[in-house]
């Protein structure tokens, strides 16, 4: 049973057709890594999955609900999809703890006490327990991104989407964020990760998807995509990045 089912997804911005026909099924607990050149539509695909971008046509089901027809229910739907952004996007006017507890409390999913207990547990799991009461700007990029992951997890999502979560980080901080993500994958989270970290994709992904010019050109286990790519475009791309 697919956790995420994307059928014939198309997305245009005006005249620019960015996603041309995307079909993708992500199984429960599967970790998918999406790779591809800049401008190939990776972010757009991810953003369509939680309706930050509206699909032009096609369907996107998450846990059986079609988000392209969610209409008024979109907020309910998004609660089950965690998203981690390249730029962290923590709320700068809230402490780390408040960043994590704000949504579950405001949406009345948890009491303040319950939410704080969960938040502290999550902070422990990303190794930032002692930072609960500081503001985001007092944290390094790597720490901010780990808080952002904890914030998304606080909603107890079914799927986690990552859009180049380490691209804005100094090299020495990439590892700490990837480690958190590896642990998350080990714990059985369903994950869709757009990344330029080929090492991470090779190690953690169950399946690697190569996107080019709005199509999924090639997909398969990392050993095949990296070890024995079939499509010439995949080969060209990998030659450039590896």
């Amino acid at each position: 049973m697919g956790k995420v089912k994307i059928k014939n997804l198309k997305k245009s911005f005006g005249d620019l057709e960015v996603l041309k026909d995307i079909n993708l099924e992500v199984k429960e607990q599967e970790v998918i890594c999406i790779i591809g050149a800049s401008g190939s539509g990776k972010s757009t695909l991810l953003r369509c999955i939680n309706a930050l971008e509206e699909a032009s046509s096609g369907t996107i089901e998450v846990d059986g609900n079609d988000i392209t027809r969610a209409d008024g229910n979109i907020n309910k739907y998004r609660q089950d999809i965690g998203m981690v952004f390249q730029q962290f996007n923590l709320f700068p006017h809230m402490t780390v703890l408040k960043n994590i507890t704000f949504a579950p409390v405001a949406l009345k999913l948890k009491t303040k006490e319950e939410a704080e207990e969960t938040a502290r547990k999550l902070l422990r799991s990303v190794d930032l327990e002692e930072k609960a009461n500081v503001y985001p700007e007092q944290l390094s990029g790597g720490q901010q991104q780990r808080v952002a992951i904890a914030r998304a997890l606080a909603m107890n999502p079914d799927v986690m989407l990552f859009d180049e979560p380490t691209s804005a980080l100094d090299p020495e901080m990439v590892g700490e964020v990837l480690n958190v993500m590896k642990q998350l994958a080990k714990d059985g989270m369903t994950m869709i990760v757009v990344t330029h970290e080929m090492g991470f994709a090779r190690e953690v992904a169950d399946r690697v998807i190569f996107i080019d010019e709005g199509f999924i050109v090639e997909e398969g286990p990392p050993s095949e995509i990296f070890g024995n790519p079939k499509n010439q475009r995949t080969i060209n791309f990998l030659n450039k990045v590896l």
Binding site: N75, R78, R151
Partner: peptide, 24 residues
């Protein structure tokens, strides 16, 4: 990104505006 992060957590537009965007 602030609005998008808020919305991605499932916060409705008004709530995101009031609690995330407007204070900043």
């Amino acid at each position: 990104g602030q609005m998008e992060a808020a919305r991605s957590l499932g916060l409705p537009y008004g709530m995101a505006m009031r609690s995330v965007i407007l204070p900043q």
